[in-house]
């Protein structure tokens, strides 16, 4: 899968903003990035996060005593799970709060945040929801939890596992709903309008359900596993990694992508590793396996170069809430901030 040739410099016609990127020497491998207000928080592979202020000062904060396995954010705090069995939350003031410790010190594999302050995490087959008031409820999934996501409305948690997704209502006595589809489901995401649910699978494919009637949507054709998904502004399309171009599935109509072809944007000679759609405009940022980062206009595919190819793959991309700044990092911690 490694590239055997150097694509060289991109054509001169490609607009470039590489000169406007503020480089950050984080000195640690990074797996995720989130904005807390104007602070870009780079989540390390182990123990620490690096908080970078608007002025570019870097402050490290220790959050775990081992590997950081998962991270999610609601913009006000970042919740992380580690191989130390702990679930911790970090806010913009660098305050770290311990939310939970697994009794058996099992790995915390997934986390999810709800807008009302509830947090969910999973360890092995057990998914746990902790309400904003601190009340905890657990659900035993039929097999190891691959991913978690809260529905945008109501307290409903999607739990991805082998052979499908369970929709659990922690505050209701009703039986959880089970959406069946053979295979191992890893990541899971609701559409912002609450009409669709999409999972990334172990094989290179997405699977989706229209929640009104549980109709299936198979989204296949990827050369590699899909690791990164992002809804475009307003939820009109779902941008995904996993191919040599950004694959954009149309979700604007009530049928979603059923019977439709996806759009393919920004094809280069490398696999897309991370995607992040702009929060307000119809543009997205795409990071590739060779370290290239492009900003792409969804309408016509026009590209702007943010970063040239480098030593390692792009690991994380995020916009701030206003959409004025883009933060990125490669797997080996070459990070940067761009003012747009």
């Amino acid at each position: 899968m490694t590239k055997e040739f150097d694509p060289g410099d991109p054509p001169a016609s490609l607009a470039s903003v590489t000169g406007q990127v503020r480089s950050l020497a984080l000195g640690m491998p990074v797996t995720a990035v989130h904005f807390l207000g104007e602070i870009a928080v780079f989540v390390g592979a182990e123990e620490k996060v690096a908080m970078v202020s608007a002025g570019g000062e870097i402050a490290e904060v220790t959050v775990h005593s081992g590997g950081i396995l998962c991270a999610g954010s609601d913009g006000a705090r970042i919740v992380m799970g580690g191989d130390d069995g702990k679930v911790v939350a970090l806010n913009a003031k660098s305050e770290v709060a311990l939310l939970a410790t697994d009794a058996k010190r099992r790995w915390i594999d997934n986390v999810a945040l709800h807008p009302d302050g509830a947090v969910a995490w999973s360890a092995g087959k057990t998914a746990t929801v902790r309400s904003g008031k601190g009340e905890e409820k657990s659900f035993p999934a039929p097999s190891t939890v691959g991913g978690l996501a809260f529905a945008p409305k109501g307290l409903r948690l999607a739990i991805a596992h082998y052979n499908g997704v369970t929709l659990w209502f922690p505050n209701m006595a009703a039986n959880p709903e089970f959406l069946e589809w053979a295979g191992s489901h890893l990541g899971v995401i609701f559409s912002p309008d609450n009409k669709f649910l999409v999972t990334t699978m172990h094989e290179p494919a997405l699977h989706g359900w229209r929640l009104a009637d549980n109709k299936h949507m198979r989204m296949t054709g990827y050369p590699g596993r899909v690791r990164s998904m992002s809804w475009s502004a307003g939820g009109k399309a779902l941008a995904t990694s996993g191919a040599d171009a950004v694959i954009l599935w149309p979700f604007a109509s009530k049928d979603g992508p059923m019977g439709k072809q996806p759009a393919m944007l920004a094809p280069v000679q490398a696999r897309v590793a991370a995607v992040a759609c702009h929060p307000k405009q119809d543009i997205l940022a795409a990071g590739y396996g060779d370290g290239v980062i492009l900003i792409v206009r969804i309408e016509d595919g026009a590209e702007i170069l943010v970063r040239k190819n480098g030593a390692s793959a792009v690991a994380a991309l995020a916009w701030n809430a206003k959409g004025t700044r883009l933060a990125f990092s490669t797997e080996d911690g070459e990070a940067g901030l761009l003012e747009v």
């Binding site: 491998p29 797996t31 590997g67 950081i68 190891t144 691959g146 191992s184 172990h202």
Partner: peptide
Amino acid sequence: GDLVRILDGLMKR
């Protein structure tokens, strides 16, 4: 499947 997950997590260390 558990091995896929564990090896992925271990690679962070």
